[in-house]
């Protein structure tokens, strides 16, 4: 279980098995598994193992943003905190207990966000969303269960066309929805009441890193003066401060396969960065935040 190939396998298995598990949670579960089965004798060795595992997971074909921030948090809260006990076995147990607590918290997070965000959906409103986000989907489901009548526009979201899956999911719930072209964002913007998107990562500035096209949507929304809401768990907050699109780390923009094989200057990126000035509110498990509050929360978490 400690080899990187095994970890990758386990990690991918979790994601494939359960549609509703986000990449970050899967990464943390894999790390728990590493702690459980590692035959290391010291805390330091264990830490090295964990770092190895994180590297291994980053090399899978999932986007790195969530893995990065979730693992950083995990390392910070689980391993660093456990250093005061002398007995390693005991220490390991404490770590695992904390880990379980951590995962439990993460799983509750989405429910909190859904509860907060569903209140913002009103009868007769039209919502625009981008790509496929689990938390947005659950929020829409919840609102539908509250017998609210609303309509959803979903972008097709090239290149992986994840919007099609989103539409399918919404249709099974009986929510009226329309699939639109990515290039039709501007056309549709004036009809919608607000935009609701998920995020792969939230950065220090309060901006988000999300599926490419989110930035376009945000700029467009700002121009037409529609609120741009982001639904995201707080474990996706990361201590990164991109100054612009070029400044985003490459591991965020491209999967490891592409990085290895292709000339990056000719490949389109998978994610883009939306600066905080385009975001109206962030719905997180810490509450509803303005973009500037993200940095405050991060300082509280890490300092």
């Amino acid at each position: 279980m400690t080899t990187s190939a095994n970890i990758q396998e386990y990690f991918c298995k979790i994601i494939k098995q359960d549609e509703d598990v986000s990449v970050g949670v899967a990464a943390i579960r894999s790390l728990m598994e590493v702690i459980k089965f590692s035959n290391s004798e010291t805390v330091q060795e264990l830490e090295a193992n964990l770092k190895e595992a994180i590297e291994a997971m980053k090399n899978t074909n999932y986007t790195v943003a969530a893995i990065n921030s979730a693992c950083e948090l995990f390392i910070r809260f689980i391993t660093l905190a456990a250093l005061d006990t002398r007995d390693f076995e005991k220490c390991k147990k404490i770590m695992l207990a904390r880990g379980h607590l951590f995962i439990k918290k993460l799983e509750e997070a989405r429910g909190k966000i859904v509860r907060l965000a569903a209140n913002f959906i009103e009868d007769g409103c039209k919502i625009l969303t981008h790509s496929r986000s689990r938390v947005v989907l659950q929020t829409l489901r919840k609102a539908c269960k509250q017998n609210k009548k609303f309509e959803v526009f979903v972008t097709i979201s090239a290149p992986d066309n994840s919007g099609k899956r989103m539409v399918k999911d919404l249709e099974t719930e009986g929510i009226p929805c329309t699939l639109i072209l990515d290039s039709a964002i501007g056309y549709i913007m004036e009809q919608v009441n607000f935009i609701m998107v998920g995020a792969e990562g939230v950065v220090e500035s309060g901006g988000i890193v999300n599926k490419v096209g989110s930035y376009t949507m945000a700029v467009c929304a700002k121009e037409v003066k529609k609120p741009f809401y982001v639904l995201t768990e707080s474990f996706k907050f990361s201590r990164l401060f991109p100054l612009g699109q070029q400044d985003l780390p490459e591991e965020y923009k491209y999967t490891s396969d592409i990085r290895r094989k292709c000339d990056l200057s000719k490949i389109h990126p998978l994610v883009d960065y939306t600066p905080p000035s385009y975001i109206t509110l962030l719905f997180t498990d810490l509450g509803i935040l303005t973009p500037s509050a993200v940095s405050d929360e991060l300082i509280k978490l890490y300092l």
Binding site: E204, S205, G206, R239, F241, L243, P276, S277, S292, S295, D296, L298, I299, K300, Y302, L303
Partner: peptide
């Protein structure tokens, strides 16, 4: 602050709006 993208401090790169938090800490 809306003219400043980021403030680089020894703690982190922050948006201008985080000054009160740093002061509190």
């Amino acid at each position: 602050p809306d003219l400043v993208t980021a403030v680089v401090t020894e703690i982190a790169i922050l948006p201008c709006t985080s000054v009160p938090v740093v002061l509190r800490i």
